[in-house]
Design a protein around this nucleic acid. Structure first.
Lengths: 312, 312
DNA sequence: GGTTTCAATCGGTTTTATCGATCATGCTCC
DNA sequence: GGAGCATGATCGATAAAACCGATTGAAACC
């Protein structure tokens, strides 16, 4: 059942195609590929000829290359093909020299500020040849970046949606943060039910911590207050300031408290009693079948160690 | 967040690698790639140098190239990368000229003999430029072939396991086949429960029809008889002969009956009454994200038409 | 109308893939 | 143990291609 070899497009030509789609400009796309505009232009024409298919709307009013529907489809397929080729090279590179080279790590804002100051030195010490690029963003954007290949590894809180391999690291229990002198601070712990009588402040929408906290309290989505008139808290630090200012109470992950989010604010924290230990699960995540999956899993102990409160 | 472009392996070199893994012999692999042995050898050496990784056990006793563990891993990744490149070319080819070129179709043995005599002429008439290669095999092997890229399209019965996109075509209800004069043949239809008192013959293990029939009758797997002393029926035609020989009763799909599986055998068929219309669902199946998915779906009406009993 | 921007084209150069032939090595068999 | 054989690596030459720099043609802008 041998079939005649179909004419495979060259990776270089596919890179030209993808770069043009990314930059929308022959000159800039060429620069991104480190070739001249004439080379990129000729390469695309050759690709069109070899595939015997029109990829670009030629001859029409210019000012921006216009792709045909087929062209757009091929751009998407070219991306996956290039990613597959990179996976080959990356697999070899990892086998040759693990824990080295660039690693693009995405971290959510409710983890990053509290963990990275401890994690980064530990990683530098354990893997000196690793070149760590950081990006802090909301879970959804990080997952999109991971799936698009712009990020290699995520440090986030479960549950989270997306097609990725996840490795749970540690539970991060929620604590109740109260203004100093608040009546709920009399006891060692606060039952979840007691929160329904309080003004519960949470981060603005989009932060996974908001959804996780609502779930922990058994609240339907959107019931908690974001603050007056849509003035929502944008970080845990501002949230603490709002609690200190007597605007309400909130939930804070233990990690943030260990990380010093309270500072000198007049805020008290108490354990939260509820069914099934309210909290979130911190985890690493990467693309399924990533060539570096083994390497990433190998980082887990270092990250988990940095999560321990006593870690320096 | 621009990263230095990793050195991508050339598709040609990856083909050399895959061909060597397939043939286990430099000369034959080179022939399969339509190059000389020296070219293939040099190409693989260049690949090893570019990836800076050992792919083959060099210098040891020869008689057969031995891959390193990394080499084997790279062979697998090279296969997927080449498949992704082919998908680019194939997408363009399909857009340029749909319903043409080679199509490797897998069919299960309980469909093929009864449908293909009607389907093939219809397909030839509707898509004269389509070059149809056929392979008849058990569901499991067909699915493996599809996933490995040796087949493009399957015609099978659901439910079936495997990662593929399926398009249901038509229900294929089961009928009871009885020896002429059998007491159950007195009535127009046979209740499912009545079969438990009969010697139920089914195809040998591996045929999905066996599992589907067992499920239709509410039988646990393996309860039905395959025949005396492991002498199992290997096709529906032999099964009919066994029923005609008074060895027991069986279930036949309507498709096979319409396709003339009974011949002149002294066998009667009756409707089977049971919960939820006992039968199987005939379907097309292809790889998820196949470039030709739209083309395959377009074949469905032609196939469904050939499934109609009245079709010529 | 002149200018600017942008992509396609052209000629020349460098790089690379490939071939055919040869060489090195380890088996096999007498 | 040595001749013969099969297999894969190496070498020099050649043809193909990828790429660059400069130029051209055409639309958009002022």
């Amino acid at each position: 059942m041998l079939l005649p070899t179909p004419h495979l497009p060259s990776p270089q030509q596919l890179r030209y195609l993808v770069a043009l789609a990314d930059h929308g400009h022959f000159g800039r796309a060429a620069a991104a590929c480190a070739v001249t505009q004439s080379t990129l232009s000729a390469g695309l024409i050759a690709l069109e000829r070899q595939l015997a298919a029109g990829l670009l709307e030629r001859g029409t009013s210019v000012k921006r290359p216009v792709f045909t529907p087929l062209g757009l489809e091929l751009v998407a397929r070219a991306r996956t093909a290039l990613a597959a080729l990179e996976a080959v090279a990356e697999t070899a590179a990892m086998a040759r020299d693990p824990h080295s080279g660039p690693l693009r790590l995405g971290v959510i804002p409710t983890i990053g500020p509290f963990l990275l100051p401890r994690l980064m030195p530990a990683l530098r010490a354990a893997y000196p040849r690793l070149r760590l690029w950081l990006r802090e963003d909301l879970t959804d954007r990080l997952v999109a970046g991971l799936e698009a290949g712009r990020l290699d590894l995520l440090l986030l809180a479960l549950p989270a949606a997306g097609t990725m391999e996840t490795l749970p690291l540690a539970e991060d229990p929620f604590r109740v943060a109260l203004p100093r002198g608040h009546h709920l601070a009399d006891r060692d712990s606060v039952p979840v039910g007691a929160l329904s009588g309080e003004r519960l402040l949470l981060l603005e929408d989009g932060h996974c911590l908001r959804a996780h906290a609502e779930a922990a309290c058994g609240l339907p989505r959107g019931l908690a207050h974001s603050g007056e008139e849509g003035f929502a808290a944008t970080s845990l630090h501002t949230l603490v300031q709002m609690v200190a200012g007597n605007l309400g109470v909130t939930l804070l992950p233990q990690l943030a408290i260990d990380g010093g989010v309270l500072g000198n604010s007049p805020v008290e924290v108490r354990r939260l009693d509820g069914a099934a230990a309210p909290g979130r699960m911190l985890a690493l995540a990467w693309r399924p079948r990533s060539p570096r999956a083994a390497e990433f899993a190998g980082l887990a102990p270092t990250v988990a160690a940095a999560l321990e409160p006593g870690a320096t």
